[in-house]
Design a protein around this nucleic acid. Structure first.
Lengths: 146, 146
DNA sequence: GCTGGCCTTGACGCCGGGGGCAAGGTCTAC
DNA sequence: GTAGACCTTGCCCCCGGCGTCAAGGCCAGC
């Protein structure tokens, strides 16, 4: 199988495969004319890489899985090194989730506060008595830039 | 105030300030010798930018807030454009959170499954009767690369 | 033999948010 | 007058994961 076919069967591009090879992740044999030659096992390895990439794993993080498969294990995650990548990824995801959640909540709070202030401003402007609470509002600045 | 002092007071670098200026986000007046000259309002603007950056906003997303402040509003988020950025950021964060959570769960499931299989493999190896369920295990490959 | 489709290597581009360095100008203190 | 602390512009570098040429080789079918 040549590079174009492998790329098509894995749903990726030839450029990507050459890139993987340049990173030493998916080396290819060569046929007589210098073309890269792949077999079904390479397709398995490539699918393993792609699956992990889709999960957000970096290329280097897929390496243990690929080497595990290449060592003859039934699955890419049959080896301790792969499990270790799972665990560190899980920790990384949890940390990322916690931080994103925190940011989300803070942004939501800012949005709610800003909308409220706009509503109060509009109500004050509608009121013929004049904008009394504008004092509070202008000091509200400190809260945001604290 | 010159660039070094502003950078120090905002806890950032002169390089960053020059970058912001190159992006048209924080233009500076010039004093006679060609040095950039900033005032207290610039510090406010800069703090607004930095706060949003810390929340993960891109530079372009901070622009409405800066322009809002520069227009004389009490807070950077007093303007509709800023609120719109809040809302789209919130939606983006929610989408990101959902996807990350999904990935997290899938990775956790893969880890649990892989650890279980390793445990079964170890138990089978310990058993003197020979590895009977190895059939199941080798076909387990398809589950992962499906 | 010629067109078209595949393949090869090499090199540059991109995205964001700056880092780092060079070569030179400017001001201050001694 | 000179050290050194600041400032200026400009340019290349970084990260990852490729996309996108460019110039040329190989092979099949007509």
């Amino acid at each position: 199988m040549r590079i174009g076919e492998l790329a098509a069967r894995a749903g990726t591009t030839t450029r990507t495969l050459r890139y993987y090879e340049s990173r030493g992740l998916l080396p290819a044999r060569r046929s007589g004319n210098g073309y890269r030659a792949y077999d079904e096992e390479d397709l398995q390895l490539l699918r393993q890489i792609r699956t992990l990439q889709d999960f957000g794993f970096g290329l280097e993080e897929t390496r243990p899985f690929v080497e595990c498969l290449r060592a003859g294990h039934p699955a890419g995650d049959s080896c301790p090194a792969s499990l270790e990548v799972y665990r560190s990824k899980l920790a990384e995801l949890d940390a990322c989730l916690a931080q994103l959640q925190s940011v989300r909540d803070q942004v939501a709070a800012q949005l709610a506060r800003a909308e409220l202030e706009r509503a109060e401003l509009a109500r004050a402007a509608d009121r013929p008595g004049g904008p009394e609470p504008s004092c509070e509002l202008s000091t509200g600045r400190g809260r945001w830039t604290s």
